[in-house]
Amino acid sequence: MDLSSKIERDVQIVTAELDRIDAAVAIQFKDWMRDVTAGNECRVILDLGKVGFIDSSGLGAIVASLKQMPDGRRLDLACLQPTVEKVFRLTRMDTVFAIHRTVAEGLGHGRA
């Protein structure tokens, strides 16, 4: 699995340990996300800082990862590289996710 995970301040931080989320890994990525987030109930921040390229399959896999989260459980994104951010912006999926510049910012964001 090309994802790593840790819990910090009641938030699960999942880091994508791959440089591309494209058609070759999209289906696996969605399954990895389901497996890595199972058994927790806290908010998830997906750190995409190492990902330099996503295509529409990769975008679809991230949207699918959100849709498969149990009701009420949040999936936020952090550390989008410019090319990745552009795909979210053009498709308006940047309005669907809370997108944080850094994981630290994302951790602060969730605190009431």
Binding site: A64, K67, R92
Partner: peptide, 23 residues
Amino acid sequence: ADVPAETAELPEGGFGWFLIHQL
């Protein structure tokens, strides 16, 4: 490019041609 309000309604595909036209 309209984004549905309900998470369950979000599209998981169909972005490809949209991006091709845009770019």
